[in-house]
C-alpha cells in the first residue's frame, strides 16, 4: 500500500488479551441469554432479604390478557411484542418476560438455563483469574489500562468526551494507546462489573450464604443481590453495545484484525 509508511502496524494486543477477549465474547453472551431465561422463571425484582409474589417488586415484567408490560416503581410501559407478551417462532403468543430470541434455550426451561449459566460461570471465573494473573505478569494492566498522570484531569476527560461525541476518534500516534474513556470503561468492567456479577451471583446461593455469610451483609440480602446482579448484567449489555458501535466507527476490519492477530494499523492523522 502506498500510504502504509505513514500508517505503521503496531503490535497492540498480546495473546492473553486476545484469548480472553474471544473466550469472553462467547461466555458473556451465554451468561446473558441464559440469565434472561432464569429471570423469566420469576420476572420480578425486590430489595432486601426476602421477596416473593405478595411482596412489592421494584421491577416487574408482566402481561395482561392483551398486552405485555414493564413496570419500574410506579411507572409502566406497554412492551407488547417484546417483553411480557410476544409471539414465538411458531407464531403462538407467549407471556414470558424475555422473548425466545433473547434466551438460552429459546423455549422455556429453567433447568436447562441453569445448567448453561452455572457451567459457564466457572469458565467466566477461571478465564478472568487467568487473565488477571497474565496481565499483572505482562504488565498489561499497569502499562495499558491504568490512567497516566494528567489523564484523569477533568479537562482531559471532558476533551475526550467532546471528541467522541463529534466522532473524532484518536488517530496517528495518539491511537497507539487507549484513551482515558477506554481505560475507564475497561477498568470498570474488569474490576467493577465482573467481580460484582460473580459476587452477587454467589450471594444468591444458599450454600454460599452458609459458607460466606458476609456476602449477605455486603449486598443487603439475597433479593438485593439478585437485583444488583440484574442491573450489572444490563450494564454489561450496554458496554457490549457501545463497544460494538465503537468498533464499527473506528474501522471494523482493522479493529477485528488487531484482536485476532494482535497487529493494529494506526489510523491516519486527521487533515492529511
Amino acid at each position: 500500500m502506498a500510504d502504509a509508511g505513514d500508517r505503521p502496524l503496531v503490535y497492540r494486543h498480546r495473546l492473553a488479551t486476545r484469548l480472553w477477549h474471544w473466550l469472553n465474547a462467547l461466555i458473556v453472551i451465554v451468561m446473558l441469554m441464559s440469565g434472561l431465561m432464569i429471570f423469566n422463571a420469576h420476572p420480578r425484582l425486590y430489595w432486601g432479604q426476602y421477596g416473593a409474589n405478595a411482596d412489592r417488586a421494584w421491577l416487574q415484567i408482566g402481561a395482561s390478557p392483551t398486552r405485555g408490560m414493564l413496570r419500574i416503581g410506579d411507572r409502566s410501559w406497554d412492551t407488547t411484542g417484546v417483553l411480557g407478551r410476544w409471539k414465538d417462532r411458531e407464531g403462538n403468543v407467549q407471556t414470558r418476560a424475555f422473548p425466545w430470541w433473547a434466551t438460552i434455550p429459546s423455549r422455556y426451561s429453567l433447568s436447562a438455563a441453569r445448567r448453561w449459566h452455572l457451567a459457564f460461570a466457572w469458565l467466566l471465573v477461571a478465564g478472568g483469574l487467568a487473565f488477571l494473573v497474565a496481565s499483572l505478569f505482562n504488565r498489561h494492566i499497569r502499562r495499558d489500562l491504568l490512567p497516566r498522570r494528567g489523564e484523569l484531569a477533568p479537562g482531559n476527560i471532558w476533551h475526550e468526551i467532546a471528541d467522541h461525541a463529534r466522532l473524532r476518534l484518536p488517530a496517528g500516534e495518539a491511537a497507539r494507546r487507549y484513551n482515558i474513556l477506554q481505560k475507564l470503561s475497561y477498568l470498570g468492567v474488569i474490576f467493577g462489573l465482573l467481580p460484582l456479577l460473580v459476587l452477587t451471583g454467589l450471594t444468591m446461593s444458599p450454600g454460599m450464604n452458609a459458607a460466606w455469610p458476609w456476602l449477605l451483609d455486603l449486598f443487603g440480602g439475597r433479593q438485593s443481590a439478585r437485583s444488583i446482579h440484574f442491573l450489572c448484567a444490563a450494564a454489561m449489555l450496554l458496554f457490549i453495545l457501545v463497544h460494538l458501535v465503537m468498533v464499527v466507527l473506528a474501522g471494523p476490519f482493522n479493529e477485528v484484525r488487531s484482536m485476532v492477530t494482535g497487529w493494529f494499523r494506526l489510523p491516519r492523522e486527521r487533515g492529511r
Binding site: I38, F39, A41, H42, R44, Q49, Y50, G51, A52, N53, L110, R114, M204, P206, N209, R222, Q223, R226
Partner: peptide
C-alpha cells in the same frame, strides 16, 4: 430461615 425457590423468589 430464608426459603429460596429455584425460580428466584425468597420468603422468610
Amino acid at each position: 430461615t430464608r426459603h429460596d425457590c429455584v425460580e428466584g423468589w425468597s420468603a422468610i
